[in-house]
């Protein structure tokens, strides 16, 4: 895995070098695009936090909630998984105002994308909880622990490790879907690129830089999640029986 990272980093460095060497426009476009990238990162981070919270709540509600709560969670998951993220953005931005709800574009972006990824995440969390061996639950019952204490102290810490790789996927998915917010007037990376392209027509230079910036951010996510996985897996692997 370290080798693969090295390979990708090398390719990126090569492309970056190519860009710097070939294009006089690099210095011209980069500052503006970096500003856009900052917005992209902001939406990704805030969206990720919201997605994680929604995913855990929806998963627990679906698994252990009383019937009405369970149905609410299922409705949320199916609704946000089953419709396109772009349509969800448009709904919150263009349709809700007709019902008197007017939200800031940035808030809409974070809400829509966070809820969307959270719906996928809910199934990831649920799957990881179910995958914890039944004997662990039985041990908590035999020790007279409440279900809440069992989840908090025994089940979720073990489920957490299994969740990390799929969450890495989802976060990259989230990063990529932030480009949709350019369609609701937010000046993210993609928006800035289109704007510059329309005024300068230096399409190749601009979009090579954009590509590299997205790739760089997703690499940071990948490396971060790997580190987290190694740390968490280390803690549990020491304990895994047999």
């Amino acid at each position: 895995m370290a080798q693969r990272l090295l390979l990708v980093s090398t390719i990126m460095a090569f492309l970056a070098g190519l860009a710097i060497a070939s294009f006089a426009g690099f210095r011209e476009f980069l500052p503006g695009l970096l500003q856009g990238a900052l917005i992209t990162v902001e939406i990704t981070v805030a969206g990720a936090v919201l997605a994680l919270v929604c995913a855990v709540i929806a998963a627990l509600a679906k698994l252990y909630g009383p019937a009405p709560v369970r149905w609410l969670a299922i409705t949320y998951i199916e609704l946000f998984r089953g419709t396109s993220a772009l349509v969800q953005l448009f709904w919150m931005f263009f349709v809700l105002p007709h019902f008197g709800v007017r939200l800031e574009p940035l808030l809409v972006a974070i809400l829509a994308l966070g809820l969307n990824i959270g719906a996928y995440g809910a199934e990831v969390v649920r799957g990881a909880i179910i995958a914890v061996p039944r004997g662990q639950w039985e041990a908590t019952i035999a020790l007279n622990m409440s279900r809440a204490a069992a989840l908090r102290r025994v089940i979720l810490p073990q489920a957490f490790v299994a969740m990390i790789p799929p969450w890495g996927n989802l976060l990259i998915e989230l990063l990529k879907s932030t480009s949709l917010v350019s369609l609701i007037t937010i000046a993210d990376l993609t928006f800035r690129a289109q704007q510059m392209n329309q005024t300068t027509f230096r399409t190749v230079e601009i979009f090579i830089i954009v590509l590299l910036l997205y790739l760089a951010i997703s690499m940071i996510i990948t490396v971060g999640m790997r580190a987290l996985e190694a740390k968490a897996a280390g803690a549990v692997a020491r304990g895994r029986a047999h």
Partner: peptide, 24 residues
Amino acid sequence: VFQHFNLFPHMNAVQNCMEAPVTV
């Protein structure tokens, strides 16, 4: 006590024995 032990893998021996007395 179970056939397959069912110890908590993310806790060491002492922590396994402390968990329920502390939380319960």
